[in-house]
Simulated scan of single mutants.
Amino acid sequence: MARFNEIGTAIIPGQGTKLRLLQRNDEFAIKIAGNTGELMNTRLHGSEDALATLACKRIAKHSKAKVLIGGMGMGFTLAAALDSLGDDAEVTVAELVPEVVDWNRGPLGAASGYPLNDSRTKIHLGDVAQLMQQQERAYDAIMLDVDNGPEGLTRKENDWIYSPEGIAQAKSALKPKGILAYWSAGEDPIFTARLRKAGLQVKAETVRAHKPGKGAKHIIWLAW
């Protein structure tokens, strides 16, 4: 079997952690330098798709839907959101690492169908927290996949997203009848309780990393 070759690196701002983009034939993976595990792989994106499809199902009847996605990843959540929304929708992706956007504009983007080329897509180079703090009642859906979940892995600052203050800010950035969606690598009953304490109705969906119905079990929280 062919080996992965490193074709790109990037430093996460404020953290110093290095990301590595690897390629093996038409398969890509992103890893943290010094860590043997993968952050993401183009073969395993079922749960990233589900983050968008489950949330967009809740806003299917909203005209001119405005969506905010925290984390570009490998583009699969963005692609699934665009596939689920109408021609009048607007999807903003907030990505902290500029190189990740560049990778998605390059060869990596073929795996998700180059959703950055869609006219409905907007890119914000920066922290998704900044956008949520600047906006009030702006989005029909906010989808957050900025780390491994409430138990952060890549960046300590991401913990704010899952804090009571972060949840309250996300809630205030939603339009009436909007939906919050959070991706996580695993279950976290404490976070479920935190969402409910914020006055939100919550549904935790178990989804699989690989389609159809295969791979590791991940969690999508839907909160409204």
Rank of each mutant, 00 (worst) to 15 (best):
R3Y: 14
R3V: 13
E6M: 14
G8T: 08
T9K: 07
I11G: 01
I11F: 12
I11N: 08
I12F: 03
G16T: 07
T17H: 11
L19A: 06
R24W: 10
D26Y: 09
D26F: 09
F28R: 06
I30C: 04
I32R: 04
A33H: 02
G37E: 15
L44V: 13
L44R: 06
H45S: 12
H45I: 13
E48K: 01
D49G: 08
A50G: 03
A50H: 00
A50Y: 03
A52D: 06
A52P: 00
T53P: 01
C56D: 04
K57H: 12
K66D: 13
V67P: 00
L68D: 13
I69V: 10
G70S: 03
M74G: 00
G75V: 05
A80F: 02
L82P: 01
L85C: 03
D87C: 11
D88R: 01
D88W: 05
V91D: 03
V91E: 07
T92Q: 05
L96P: 01
L96C: 05
V97Q: 01
V97P: 00
V101K: 03
G109T: 05
A110N: 05
A111I: 02
A111S: 01
S112A: 12
Y114P: 02
D118K: 03
R120G: 02
H124P: 01
G126N: 04
G126I: 08
V128D: 05
L131P: 01
M132E: 14
M132N: 11
Q135F: 10
Q135C: 15
R137F: 09
R137D: 13
A138I: 13
Y139F: 14
A141R: 00
L144P: 00
D147E: 09
G149N: 10
G149Q: 08
P150H: 05
P150L: 11
P150T: 10
T154I: 15
T154C: 12
T154Q: 11
E157R: 10
N158I: 11
D159P: 02
W160I: 14
I161W: 03
S163K: 04
S163D: 04
P164D: 10
P164F: 07
P164M: 09
E165N: 07
G166L: 11
Q169Y: 07
Q169H: 11
A170P: 00
A170D: 06
P176Q: 12
K177E: 13
G178Q: 08
G178D: 01
L180K: 04
A181M: 08
A185Y: 15
E187I: 12
I190Y: 09
F191A: 03
F191T: 01
T192N: 02
A193F: 08
L195H: 00
L195W: 00
K197V: 12
G199I: 05
G199K: 03
K203D: 08
A204R: 04
E205R: 01
T206S: 14
H210A: 15
K211T: 14
G213L: 15
K217N: 13
K217E: 13
K217W: 11
H218L: 15
I220G: 00
L222D: 02
W224Q: 08
